[in-house]
């Protein structure tokens, strides 16, 4: 019901795309490649889950890429330069990023500002702050990093399900449950339908807005930690443009950009589609990696056109009956 048909289309596109790639490069159809795909896109999957909540509620969060960048730098410096135990550093950065998101949500609600502008400011702020901390890449050598990097579940066929891929899957499943089974999730859809109506129906719109942006920033913080595991370094220029990749994943996953409809599962499929394109280009070897962006652009356009078609189709009978009475 809630955006499943568009998500279903995403699933079909993913399966068809995977089948087509596997026909050209039979090696793609292996747990090894799938495992790598999940690992390579773990941070994107996490941050896109948060983005799905924000967009379904009718907002947008442009700051997530910068929050990831800031997180990697903060964690690297805390562990390597300031001598903070890794776990303490993680908790500190998660608290910090959650507070950052809550502050953006509060500004959006209290001053009734467009989320686009507020989170754009947040984007510059977080990116600038990470440059302030360090402009160079800081390698992380703490033992916990090699332990986590080495950890993996063996899959049949030789594939490795890494720790960060598992974190991502847990967050995606948790996000889906939160969105579809809880009162919080229902309120996210309500906000996306209409803020004024939701508030008239008793939803605490202000609290919800704060919580939603808090969730998005918190997940961006987790994605940042995951990214630092992935690269074993902190760099202020990391994850530039990831906010756009995650918005693309959300939209390809069948979520309406205007809010009110969508799903976390669809978003996850959208992430996988982007990962698949990247994998195909790696296998091909001759194509420039920028073809990922071009293919993503084409897909985005196709999905937006498709959604507009679906929306128009859904509205038609309503418009008819309204027309008869005016």
């Amino acid at each position: 019901m809630k955006g499943l048909p568009p998500a279903l289309i995403t699933a079909i596109v993913l399966v068809a795309g995977f089948a087509a790639c596997a026909m050209q490069f039979p090696n793609i159809a292996s747990t090894r490649v799938v495992g790598n795909l999940l690992t390579d896109n773990a941070f994107l999957g996490i941050v896109a889950t948060g983005m799905a909540f924000v967009i379904i509620s009718g907002g947008i969060d442009l700051s997530v890429g910068s929050v990831i960048g800031f997180t990697t730098v903060f964690v690297a410096l805390a562990i390597e330069r300031w001598g903070v135990p890794p776990l303490v550093a993680f908790v500190a950065i998660l608290v910090l990023s959650a507070a950052f998101g809550a502050a953006m949500g509060a500004v959006i609600h209290i001053f009734d500002l467009p989320p686009f502008i507020v989170t754009l400011a947040g984007m510059f702020l977080a990116r600038g702050a990470s440059f302030l901390l360090s402009t160079e890449s800081v390698p992380i050598t703490a033992p916990v990093y090699s332990t986590v990097s080495d950890f993996a579940l063996r899959m049949p066929g030789g594939g490795r399900l890494t720790a960060i891929a598992i974190i991502m899957l847990v967050i995606v499943i948790g996000g889906a449950l939160l969105l579809h089974l809880t009162r919080f999730g229902a309120n996210v859809y309500a906000l996306g339908g209409s803020r004024t109506t939701a508030s008239l129906m008793g939803v605490a719109v202000g609290k919800m807005t704060i919580k939603i942006y808090m969730l998005s920033s918190l997940l961006a913080g987790i994605a940042g930690i995951v990214f630092s595991f992935y690269t074993s370094a902190g760099y202020s220029l990391s994850a530039v443009g990831v906010e756009l990749d995650s918005i693309a994943a959300v939209v390809i996953g069948g979520t309406l950009l205007t809010g009110g409809q969508g799903s976390v599962i669809g978003t996850f499929l959208g992430v996988l589609i982007q990962g698949l394109i990247q994998t195909y280009i790696n296998f091909d070897g001759t194509l420039s990696s920028w073809w990922t962006k071009i293919a993503t652009g084409v897909l985005l356009f196709a999905f937006i056109a498709l959604q507009q078609g679906l929306v128009a189709l859904a509205r038609r009978p309503v418009r008819k009956s309204a027309g008869a009475t005016t």
């Binding site: 009162r183 229902a186 309120n187 859809y189 209409s194 939701a198 129906m201 939803v203």
Partner: peptide, 23 residues
């Protein structure tokens, strides 16, 4: 009301029957 939510959600928004935090 919210046309994008189910009829049931519209009737019980913000006061859904809950168990262990799950609607």
């Amino acid at each position: 009301l919210l046309p994008n939510l189910s009829v049931a959600q519209n009737l019980f928004l913000d006061r859904q029957p809950m168990r262990f935090g799950i609607v």
